[in-house]
């Protein structure tokens, strides 16, 4: 699985949504990505890339796109 696939997959599994829903998705835009969904999502992403995210990054992780930027910039994940 490519990193991009892993990333998308974390959204699909943690939020229980379909793959074509993730592009452009923002926090709180759908009922599944609420504060509870956010915790599942962060845990899934940490697991997928074997990283530990800082609290500030967990708070800043406000969209599908923003998440990609955070992973690239702060955790050296190539996406």
């Amino acid at each position: 699985m490519t990193n991009q696939e892993k990333y998308t997959n974390a959204f699909v599994e943690a939020l229980e949504i379909s793959g074509n829903q993730v592009e452009g998705l923002e926090y709180q835009a759908i009922p599944e990505w609420d504060s509870v969904g956010h915790m599942s999502l962060i845990a899934a992403i940490e697991e997928a890339f074997d990283i530990m995210m800082d609290t500030d990054d967990i708070i800043d992780f406000s969209s599908y796109k923003k998440g990609q930027e955070i992973l690239k910039k702060n955790y050296g994940v190539e996406l």
């Binding site: 915790m39 962060i42 845990a43 940490e46 990283i51 530990m52 995210m53």
Partner: peptide, 9 residues
């Protein structure tokens, strides 16, 4: 929130 607190990372 508890499950998140005890997560591995």
């Amino acid at each position: 929130a508890y499950a998140f607190w005890i997560r591995k990372a």
